[in-house]
């Protein structure tokens, strides 16, 4: 991989250069929380943050997305609808990049999803290493604190300058066109390594099992009383799945124009924690009880996705821990409990 260095003075012109060419989404701060949003200038951008409320997933799998448009009446016509405007997502943390790699696997698998794939191709990912992790994060346990893949450019703050890892030709082009950089030296890279290691020491949570152990740990404990215990407190609100960067399930519905001449079909985020998720029209519900739904979420993240897509469904961002009102969504606590009991 090639590495460049950009000084902090040269970063604003780089970002503003990008803004002159393409839509840029970055992390903003509001009331002490962070969120991804479209930025108009470098000044709005925050590159030192712990975690955003909602992952950048929303730009690749929007919460509500039109799939088809149709006309009604005598001659029904229907056409696909894909909104894939080019965009840069700036300041994505490594765990969220890992989650995007998993989404890529899901949506390119066997029946490629044109809506996702088209948007993904038009999305440039500029990552930034996380120096001050969220108190709920456990990325080192999941092997997602840093990444060497999945980005076009990756920034690491080494003090007065950023090391820029170049992950794609597209990233390199943008850097060349809009930034003044110099080639990174051995010393820069040594500093980058030190900064990354320093960040590792700041994580507060860790899983007592090795990441490779997790799928089997779950499999052995399908009938563990833990699931029922947690489910007894679960509100079935779906918050854990709404903030999860690897939750990709969706519902599909139609809507019509008020004048009834046409309409559209859309998908929107759905949650396997909600009661009706597996219910069929005749009333049969295949995960009616809360325990089976809660267990399904844990297994999907820690076992099923790995088997199906080759990547674990948890990246350790800890958003679910923060979002859960009943304080039962922590993978760290669940895995540790199973590990201790085994």
């Amino acid at each position: 991989m090639k590495y460049e260095v950009i000084t902090k003075e040269d970063l604003p012109p780089f970002v503003n250069g990008l803004l002159s060419e393409i839509e840029v989404v970055g992390v903003k701060r509001k009331d002490g929380k962070f969120y991804f949003d479209r930025i108009e200038s470098y000044d709005e951008l925050c590159l030192d943050y712990d975690v955003t409320l909602i992952p950048p997933k929303k730009y690749l799998l929007p919460p509500n997305e039109t799939l088809l448009k149709f006309s009604l009446g005598e001659a029904i016509q229907v056409e696909p609808f894909i909104d894939a405007a080019p965009r840069i997502i700036l300041g994505v943390h490594p765990y969220d990049i890992k989650a995007i790699e998993l989404m890529d696997a899901v949506f390119s698998d066997s029946n490629p999803d044109a809506n996702y794939m088209e948007r993904r191709r038009n999305t440039v990912i500029v990552g930034v290493d996380c120096r001050n992790p969220s108190p709920n994060a456990f990325c080192p346990s999941m092997g997602t604190a840093t990444t060497e893949t999945g980005f076009d450019l990756m920034l690491t703050d080494i003090g007065e300058q950023y090391v820029v890892a170049i992950g794609s030709e597209k990233g390199e082009e943008l850097l060349k066109k809009h930034a003044r950089t110099r080639q990174a030296t051995e010393a820069d890279l040594a500093q980058r390594k030190a900064v990354r290691e320093e960040a590792l020491a700041k994580y507060k949570l860790s899983i007592k099992a090795a990441v490779e152990e997790i799928p089997e740990l779950l499999e052995r404990n399908y009938d563990h009383p833990l699931w029922e215990e947690l489910a007894a407190k679960c509100l079935s609100c779906g918050s854990c799945t709404m903030v999860c960067p690897t939750c990709v399930c969706f519902d599909v519905q139609d809507d019509v124009e008020l004048n009834l001449t046409g309409g559209w079909r859309f998908r929107q985020w759905d949650s396997c924690m909600l009661q009706g998720f597996a219910k069929v029209a005749t009333g049969e519900n295949f995960r009616e009880d809360r325990t089976s739904r809660l267990r399904h979420r844990y297994f999907r993240k820690g076992n099923y996705m790995l088997k199906r897509y080759g990547k674990l469904g948890c990246v350790g961002c800890g958003r679910c821990i923060g979002a859960c009102l009943a304080e039962i969504a922590s993978p760290v606590e669940a895995y540790n409990r199973l590990k201790e009991g085994s």
Binding site: D109, D251, D270, F277, A278, F286, H296, F299, Y304, K307
Partner: peptide, 24 residues
């Protein structure tokens, strides 16, 4: 087997039985 299905093509997640997609 009958399951709730939205997409039919292994994306929407509704028809999962554990790791099995009924539609696939």
């Amino acid at each position: 087997l009958e399951r709730r299905m939205k997409c039919g093509v292994g994306k929407c997640g509704h028809c999962q039985i554990n790791n099995v997609y009924v539609c696939q």
